[in-house]
Simulated scan of single mutants.
Amino acid sequence: MTTVPLVPAAWLVELVNGYGSRPRAAAARTEEPYPDLDRLADLPEATALGEERLIGVADRLWPLFASADSPERTAVINDLLVRSRLTPYLDHEARTRWSTSLNAPDKLVMAGCVTTLMEVVAHGGWRRIGTCEGEDCLDAHLALPGRSRRYCSTTCLNRARIRSYRARRRQDPSVPTED
């Protein structure tokens, strides 16, 4: 059995947004270079993966963020759990760890991502994960515990506010302008 790597949640979101086909297409980033994910020394399995495998992992994870339907999300994560062949165990400090019979780097990274998402959902529910509600953005995001989130970044939030302001202004010219 191989120990499943610990995948930082921020890295996971960056993977889905930077390599996922749908988020890249929605933001017209298909011609841009892929982000450098190798900078994480704690995840050597990821450095062995090429772009195609990272795209595959990101594309399999994205539906979990994109669905607003809890039963559908449950089905997706349970399928990923089965495919990852995960087995829980306790380490010497009584922390839950995971192992798998798989040893291909992309399968290990996927298993690590699945266990990270399982922890996120277990400690905060499905409302912690989602995709940006920005008009031209499908980026994934994770909300902090106890918080809700609708946009992937401040940039998308600001764009939405500006669009809303301009729409109100078109409907009601008496809305004051900022000069």
Rank of each mutant, 00 (worst) to 15 (best):
M1H: 08
T2R: 08
T3D: 12
T3H: 15
P5E: 02
P5V: 02
L6S: 14
L6A: 13
P8W: 07
A10G: 13
A10L: 13
L12V: 04
V13M: 11
E14S: 02
E14T: 04
E14Q: 09
L15C: 04
L15E: 03
N17E: 03
G18V: 04
G18T: 02
Y19I: 05
Y19D: 06
G20F: 07
S21H: 13
A26E: 09
A27C: 12
A27W: 00
A27S: 11
A28K: 15
R29Y: 11
T30W: 14
E32F: 10
P33A: 05
Y34T: 08
P35T: 05
P35L: 05
D36F: 15
L37K: 00
L37A: 03
D38P: 04
R39K: 06
A41P: 10
T47S: 14
T47D: 09
A48N: 14
G50R: 07
G50E: 01
E51K: 10
E52N: 12
R53M: 07
R53H: 14
I55S: 11
G56N: 08
A58N: 01
W62S: 00
L64K: 02
L64P: 01
L64W: 10
F65P: 01
S67I: 06
D69T: 06
P71W: 15
R73P: 09
R73H: 13
T74S: 11
A75V: 11
V76F: 03
N78L: 08
L80P: 01
L80N: 05
L80F: 15
L81T: 04
R85I: 02
R85C: 04
L86I: 02
D91Q: 12
E93D: 09
R95F: 12
T96A: 04
T96V: 07
T96I: 11
W98G: 03
W98R: 13
S99V: 13
S99G: 09
S99K: 13
D106M: 04
K107F: 10
L108K: 07
M110N: 05
A111G: 06
V114T: 08
T115S: 10
E119C: 07
V120C: 07
V120G: 07
V120I: 14
A122F: 07
G125A: 06
W126K: 12
W126N: 06
W126R: 09
I129R: 05
G130Q: 05
G130M: 09
G130C: 03
T131K: 01
E133V: 01
E133P: 01
E133C: 03
E133N: 03
D139V: 05
H141T: 01
H141N: 00
H141F: 12
A143L: 01
P145T: 06
G146D: 10
R147N: 14
R150N: 06
S153P: 00
T155W: 15
L157Q: 05
L157W: 10
N158E: 09
N158F: 09
N158H: 12
R159P: 02
A160Q: 00
A160G: 05
A160N: 05
R161H: 14
R163C: 02
R163Q: 08
Y165L: 11
Y165G: 03
R169L: 02
R169V: 05
R170S: 10
R170Q: 09
Q171I: 06
S174G: 03
T177K: 15
E178S: 03
D179K: 15
